[in-house]
Amino acid sequence: MKIQKRSTALAAILLTATFAFAGCGSDSDDGGSASDGGSGGGGGDLSITMLPKNLGNAYFDTSTDGAEKAATEIGAEFEEVGPDTASPDAQVSYINTVAQQGKSALILSANDPDALCDAIDEARSADVKVVTFDADTNPDCRDLFINQATAEGIAAKQLELISDQIGGKGEIAILSASANATNQNAWIDMMESELADNPDYADIELVDTVYGDDEDQKSFDQTEALLQNHPDLKGIISPTTVGIAAAARYLSDSSSKGKVALTGLGTPNQMREYVEDGTVTSFALWNPGDLGYLATFAAAALVDGDITGAEGDSFDAGDLGTFEVGADGVVLLGEPFTFDADNIGDFDF
Rank of each mutant, 00 (worst) to 15 (best):
M50P: 14
Y211G: 12
M190P: 13
Q101K: 15
P83E: 00
N183T: 13
K5S: 15
Q270E: 12
L51T: 11
S7F: 02
E192Q: 14
Y211R: 12
Y59I: 09
L175A: 06
D164R: 13
P83T: 08
K5E: 14
A181H: 09
D277R: 05
L320Q: 06
K234D: 08
F349N: 13
S254M: 00
S219Q: 04
Q228V: 14
Q148L: 04
G266T: 07
A341S: 13
T267G: 09
A110Y: 06
D36P: 12
G31S: 15
V242D: 03
D316P: 10
Y250Q: 09
E224A: 14
L291D: 00
A76P: 08
F133H: 03
G212I: 08
S104L: 04
A99K: 05
I120R: 04
E192V: 15
C141M: 02
K53C: 05
P268G: 01
A295I: 02
Q91W: 03
D253T: 15
R142A: 02
A261P: 09
A284P: 05
I13H: 10
D216T: 15
M190I: 15
S252N: 11
Q4P: 13
P268D: 04
A179H: 07
K257G: 12
A295E: 05
T296M: 03
G258L: 03
T182P: 02
Q222M: 11
E335Q: 13
S256H: 07
K53W: 00
D348M: 04
D27H: 15
P231F: 01
F19I: 15
T223H: 04
A247I: 03
A70M: 06
M271K: 08
D342M: 00
A202M: 07
K103A: 08
A179L: 01
D328M: 09
A155N: 03
L233V: 14
Q91C: 03
C141F: 00
L14P: 14
D319T: 10
E68F: 04
I166F: 07
D232S: 14
I344G: 09
A225M: 06
E122H: 10
P88T: 12
E205H: 09
G264R: 01
L161E: 10
V128M: 06
S219L: 04
L333W: 00
G212T: 09
V130Q: 06
D290C: 01
Y250I: 07
L285C: 00
D197V: 05
A12S: 11
T16Q: 12
Y59T: 12
A11T: 14
I236N: 07
A301L: 06
I188Y: 03
Q158D: 02
A151Y: 03
I172W: 01
K259P: 07
L302W: 03
L333M: 01
A67T: 08
A70S: 03
D203F: 01
P88E: 04
C141Y: 00
L106D: 06
G212E: 05
P288A: 02
K259Q: 12
E122V: 15
A317V: 01
D306Y: 00
K259H: 09
N287Y: 03
F283P: 08
D319C: 04
L233D: 06
T338M: 01
D306I: 09
F19E: 13
Q270K: 11
